[in-house]
Amino acid sequence: MTEKAFSEHQEYFPWKQILGFCLSIILTVLALLVTFFMSYSRETTIVVIVALASFQLLVQLIMFMHLNELEKSFQIAVVSYGATVAIIVVAGTIWIMESGM
């Protein structure tokens, strides 16, 4: 872990960041393609682009924000908790407001 955690410290080239950038560009372009050029149903499109966005959030957290470096299990716990509450708020609100319609 010691060597691995900060290996980028001695690296000459920011591979991790460039991989993250390429991934985020690809994921964004995919989301745009799926929305504007594919004729999936509304539900399928929503599921696909929300999945792409969530994957991109993970890319940001891991490649750019170094969430998982060090053995900082606490910050992963805090972010996971925040994300859980966020999902409950959004999904719960939509569920409640749609179910009465």
Partner: peptide, 10 residues
């Protein structure tokens, strides 16, 4: 940041 996440989710 976790709190901000919740703010934006609302």
């Amino acid at each position: 940041l976790a709190a901000e996440l919740v703010l934006f989710s609302c």
